[in-house]
Design a protein around this nucleic acid. Structure first.
Lengths: 570, 570
DNA sequence: TAATAAGGTCACTAGGTCAA
DNA sequence: TTGACCTAGTGACCTTATTA
């Protein structure tokens, strides 16, 4: 469900309405409609009338146009921000993380379904309902429940921005509700860790700025909150994750693993350093944001509504979290490790260090300890620590700036990365690609015939390829759809023909990749293969198919090649 | 934060937007985005529309795409120039200086953070804001504060070019705004010392050109400006650095050491002599540049904007400087010594002689004397002492300036200049490289498996990996984070296993480094080894880790591989 | 030969357009 | 008003050129 097929959207669903995402817009995966809506509304708040339902409207595909106020609110809650926008090609890391996320989500969804049938997690029904409204349908909801790979803010915002990068104005906008949410947050169940981790992004620095603010501001909203958490997020966080911001306020629910444990790998700090994966949110358009924030605030400033929302959210959060957290703890550890590894390999940024507070560090260390490879894990933990520290510094600096500029805020967040349910899902998908060794397709391209229309839109002029892209359109997504179907629930491998075709493509790609790999191997070293294998295993479910398609796409870029290599090895 | 992880970028941040730098492009460390932007814009000024904010836009990661005019302006201000471009491998000197710079920045950042927490330097908040906008987030800001290894022009241009090498046209472009900025520069906080020293470069001569101009032109804008500073930069410098252009106007901030003291080694003159290191910047495309300059001028010619910008920037700058300067004073001394040593070994240029004052000479001799391990430590202590003395003098001078400028307060920091927690951190890291004598890895290579993504980016062609990228992201920085974490505060050493792992990594890196060193030795001369040792000792903290990571980064995929490994284990 | 940056390619998004 | 489609950029990745 989630992965509808937007090649460029990486099979993501719109975090606002649950429809297949057309891409990553303004800091979140969204459909074209929500993208356009946000883009229009952000600069024209006056056009948004007050919600007639106390701002409690549930936004989904069908009713997303019913209440503009709630739709915009949802947009903000999932991390959308004018400053959160990013341009350019998605980094491979981002892609990888997206794939992992998918897996996790699927796993989560499966788990959730199972639990619900069994009886559901405590508060589950209520929470579930809420989650659905928040995120979207099933997969989205599941993802949300899990925290979207450890991302707190609705599970969305945090995911891609290491916490959505928000301008102060945006935060204000969110914060307006924050008051209302704060009440809810205080509820034990409400507390969530907003760790954000985004595989992407331009916002590495943002986290820092925010973090500093957090220290100051957070105290009020969520005392004891990890420094790395964002103030804003923490404050309004609708779907709090245990252990993150609110830990101090109230101990995290027992059922939920500490946030830091959940997805340490995704800690913003880590990604911050990491190029590409976790970029901090931009603080653009601060003034504009301020205006918008005021308007938004106006829309949602009703105290009663706040209280109501607070209550509402509280239940929602807890159930989801519960289910997800418990189930995914193991999964999380995997991703955590991966992230840690990646981080360690790359270079820990000062921010990460900063972000990781004693708590985080601790958690990290804990995570690290039980790891497969001691070395890797270790490295990760260190890195994370280092990053955290740096972030703190930045935050401090940022705080100064913040003093000057009310608007600035970026920051990031923490990340909780979750490990996707690899084993089962992976296995299923793995078969799909005739060759297990399908390289992970890092490229978002829609290779095959699938995404004909979409990819073309943009670059048609230049490249006739139908590659990628766009997926927002259903048509192109066919290939993805296949992948998704396989991953999520379709155990069924669409057709052999397709698979074979994919395999063929993969082979071609693989060859290319191999060439690259060979050249690279010297660079990458032997370990890369093992890594690739593992990744592939993790990603096999959804990723394998995606990869194939992507790779098939016309352009075997190096990334593709690499991906292919990985798959080949696998 | 600063050191995001680009192995090839030496953990530098983009001088334009603050994002992790991808490399040294067109005369400055920049990210891929700013590189591409500059490359595109330079030849297509018509595509750049006028700034809607009087050219006062603050450029950072988040908003860098918001105003092309200001982005381009920033690019020029940080020293980017088509004529400043260069190809080929980086010289060891360049690398060394970059490493040192990193350390300083880290130290500064730490200091700044500490100071801020404590209460922050006077005027800090304001200043910080400025810095951010200029340089970027934390690290950049810190670097800026320090003067980027003694480089005045925004800390950027000067740093790498001894003043960025600019064609006349480019200078014109910059100069256009100069008038506006001059007003701002006059602000006390704005004054910065422009000492220039670039480890690299193509621009050795550029500084000269400028300097002459400065004498004449500068007088008006910033009398007393150091001769080596460039006129253009000084004139328009939006984010002036104490001591640079404005020094005459007002005495350089106490916190900043005299430019000559800061990094004598980097003085362009010195590098000029140095083989290949200091190449004069080409003045190619002058005509083209002239055209561009005209266009740019048109964009920013509003006088009012200048005034406004001046005010704005002033506040921002001061804080950063304070933090950085104080903290890094010791660091500076270290670098200073190193530079001196290197200079002595290589071929001392007349300039060097001039630069090295009696104190400096003393310090240098001291440093030189003791070598290897015991020597290393000794040297450090001495250096720190020497630095302090020098700093005091500087401070006195700065104090005078302070009297003039209310904003200055940063000085304190300078004085405090803290040495980075070398001992502990160093020790921790030191072990890492089984051999204490780890040679400093002058090569930028991403050797090990660690920093997969970063190193790969560039050479991907060679390596097929899909990796990386992104790193701006967090991943690459992991190693750095580690280093930092160790240094700064993370008491917690994650796990022994991790440490060992790191050590292992370090060893690998070291080996690589050794290889490089060996090769370099012939080049560097016999003393080079001792120097290297010393340098290593100094840099062990952050550099060793960074190096490792960087080396590891080589293959982005490596990170992936690591991840896979983890997954496998899991 | 390795390192490293310029330049090119093209994945990918912000915005704009316009039929529905 | 909405949202599918298009255009203009952006920037991640790759290739080529140049230097150590």
């Amino acid at each position: 469900m989630m992965n509808q097929d937007n090649p460029y959207a990486m099979n993501q669903t719109c975090k606002v309405c649950g429809e297949p995402a057309a891409g990553f817009h303004f800091g979140a995966f969204t459909c074209e409609g929500c993208k356009s809506f946000f883009g229009r509304s952000y600069n024209n708040l006056s056009s948004i009338s007050d919600c007639k339902n106390n701002g409690e409207c549930i936004i989904n595909k069908k009713n997303r146009t019913a209440c503009k106020a709630c739709r915009l609110k949802k947009c903000l809650m999932v991390g959308m921000s004018k400053s959160g926008s990013r341009y350019g090609r998605r980094s491979n890391w981002f892609k990888i993380h997206c794939l992992l996320q998918e897996q996790q989500q699927q796993a989560v969804a499966a788990m959730a379904a199972h639990h619900q049938q069994a009886g559901g997690p405590p508060g589950g029904a209520t929470a579930n309902g809420c989650m659905k409204s928040m995120a979207a349908p099933s997969s989205a909801a599941a993802a949300t429940a899990l925290g979207m790979l450890g991302h707190a803010t609705g599970g969305y915002a945090g995911l891609y921005g290491g916490g959505p990068a928000r301008s102060k104005e945006e935060l204000m906008m969110l914060g307006l509700d924050a008051a209302a949410y704060d009440a809810g947050i205080k509820h034990p169940s409400l507390v969530a860790s907003p760790s954000v981790s985004s595989p992407d992004s331009h916002n590495s620095d943002s986290s820092v700025e925010v973090s500093s603010k957090q220290a100051t501001d957070a105290a009020g909203a969520a005392p004891g909150r990890p420094p790395h958490l964002r103030k804003e997020l923490t404050t309004f966080l609708p779907l709090p994750f245990p252990g993150l911001g609110s830990m101090p306020v109230m101990p995290p629910p027992a059922f939920l693993p500490p946030s830091h444990l959940l997805f340490p790998g995704y800690h913003p700090a880590l990604y911050t350093h990491h190029q590409g994966l976790l970029k901090p949110t931009p603080e653009q358009q601060q003034q504009q944001a301020a205006v918008a924030a005021a308007a938004v605030q106006h829309l949602f400033n009703s105290s009663n509504a706040a209280a109501a929302s607070g209550q509402r959210y509280a239940p929602q959060l807890s159930p989801n979290h519960n289910n997800n957290s418990s189930q995914q703890s193991t999964e999380l550890s995997k991703r955590f490790y991966l992230d840690a590894v990646l981080k360690s390999q790359q270079a820990p940024s000062p921010l990460a260090t900063k972000l990781s507070t004693s708590k985080q560090d601790y958690s990290i260390s804990a995570l690290v300890t039980p790891n497969s490879e001691s070395g890797r894990e270790r490295v990760k933990s260190r890195q994370s620590n280092g990053e955290l520290e740096e972030e703190e510094q930045q935050q401090q600096e940022e705080q100064q700036q913040a003093a000057q500029q009310a608007n600035e805020e970026e920051e990031e967040d923490l990340v909780v990365s979750m490990t996707p349910p690899c084993s089962p899902a992976t296995e299923q998908q793995a078969p799909t690609p005739a060759h297990q060794d399908n390289p992970i397709d890092l490229s978002m391209k829609t290779t095959g015939s699938n995404s004909s229309s979409q990819s073309h839109r943009r670059r048609r002029s230049s490249s006739s390829n139908s590659d990628d892209d766009d997926g927002s359109d259903a048509g192109s997504s066919s290939s993805q759809a296949e992948a998704q179907s396989e991953q999520q629930e379709q155990p069924l491998h669409i057709t052999t023909a397709e698979d074979s075709a994919e395999a063929h493509n993969n082979n071609n790609n693989n060859n290319i990749n191999n060439n690259n790999n060979n050249s690279n191997k010297s660079d990458n070293e032997p370990s890369s293969e093992s890594i690739k294998r593992k990744l592939n295993a993790l990603l096999q479910e959804s990723s394998s198919q995606k990869r194939q398609r992507l790779e098939q796409c016309a352009t075997p870029t190096k990334a593709h090649a690499a991906a292919l290599d990985l798959t080949n090895k696998v």
